[in-house]
Amino acid sequence: MTMDTVDPVLAEAETDTHRQLDALFRRQAPALVRFLSRRTGREEAQDLAQEAFLRLTDAAGRKMLQKPEAYLARIARNLLRDRAKSVSGHRERTHAVLEPELHAAYDGDPHLVLEARQLLERHEAAVLKLKPKTREVYLRHRLDGQSYAEIAQALGIGVSAVEKHMMKAIAAVDRSLGRP
């Protein structure tokens, strides 16, 4: 397409959209990074903010956005939710469950027995430090073997709330046991 065939009205609208997005970025980027930093690390917050603006720019190219600030906020919340799900899934897959009956085999090494006891005590202490509802969700899932849906129904909360409690519990236990 040559410059002769470009619709001047379309070109002006595109330029206007770019100006609006640039102004929005200058106004909202610092606040968005602060918002995301409270929920992630600073470096990750900057990456998420960049991704949010990239998605906003893509959406603005496809359609006219009535409230770009609100759309940007929704994108940021969705990115946080997606991140939490992937982190939660990773922790669920890598989190070791302490089951005393499985770890109780005595092989005659008192040092190993002492280490196992200390690990179990640290795990129990971490669980006891959890908020009551988070502790109950964690214990129902880990000890009683209940599914998230069963826990949600028993406690009268949503499955997403159960997921959030489990993420908090797993993170606290991992921190207490010195896991990254």
Rank of each mutant, 00 (worst) to 15 (best):
M1E: 07
M1V: 07
M1T: 10
M3C: 07
T5S: 10
T5N: 11
V6A: 12
V6F: 05
E12W: 09
E12N: 15
A13R: 09
E14A: 02
E14R: 06
D16T: 13
Q20N: 05
L21V: 02
D22I: 12
D22M: 08
L24T: 00
L24K: 13
F25R: 13
F25M: 11
R26E: 14
R27D: 13
R27N: 08
Q28R: 08
A29Y: 13
A29F: 09
A29E: 09
P30A: 07
P30R: 02
A31R: 15
A31K: 04
R34A: 05
R34P: 12
F35A: 14
F35Q: 03
L36T: 00
L36K: 00
R38M: 11
R39N: 14
R39F: 05
G41W: 00
A45G: 14
D47E: 05
A49F: 03
A49L: 05
A52K: 10
A52L: 02
F53V: 02
F53S: 01
F53P: 02
R55L: 03
R55I: 06
R55E: 01
L56K: 07
L56H: 10
T57M: 01
T57Y: 03
D58G: 11
A59T: 11
A59G: 03
R62K: 11
R62P: 02
K63P: 09
K63A: 08
M64N: 03
M64K: 00
L65E: 07
Q66G: 13
Q66R: 10
K67H: 15
K67E: 14
E69L: 12
Y71Q: 02
Y71T: 12
L72K: 09
A73P: 01
A76S: 12
R77N: 07
L80K: 04
L80F: 09
A84L: 13
A84N: 12
A84P: 06
G89T: 04
H90P: 00
R93V: 15
R93H: 14
A96Q: 06
A96W: 11
V97M: 12
L98C: 01
L98Y: 15
E99I: 14
E101D: 11
H103V: 09
G108P: 01
D109G: 12
D109C: 15
D109Y: 14
H111G: 13
L112N: 04
L112W: 08
L114N: 04
R117Y: 06
Q118G: 10
Q118I: 08
E121N: 11
H123Q: 12
E124F: 08
V127G: 00
L128C: 08
L128A: 10
K129C: 03
L130N: 13
K131S: 07
P132S: 12
P132I: 13
K133G: 05
T134W: 12
T134V: 06
T134Q: 10
R135D: 04
V137Q: 01
V137C: 05
Y138C: 15
L139S: 04
R140V: 04
H141E: 01
D144L: 01
D144N: 11
E150H: 10
I157V: 12
I157W: 09
G158N: 03
V159Q: 07
V159P: 06
S160V: 03
A161W: 06
A161R: 02
V162T: 08
K164E: 11
H165P: 12
H165E: 09
H165R: 00
K168S: 03
A171P: 02
A171C: 13
A172C: 04
V173L: 15
V173G: 02
S176D: 04
L177T: 06
L177Y: 13
L177R: 06
G178H: 08
R179H: 07
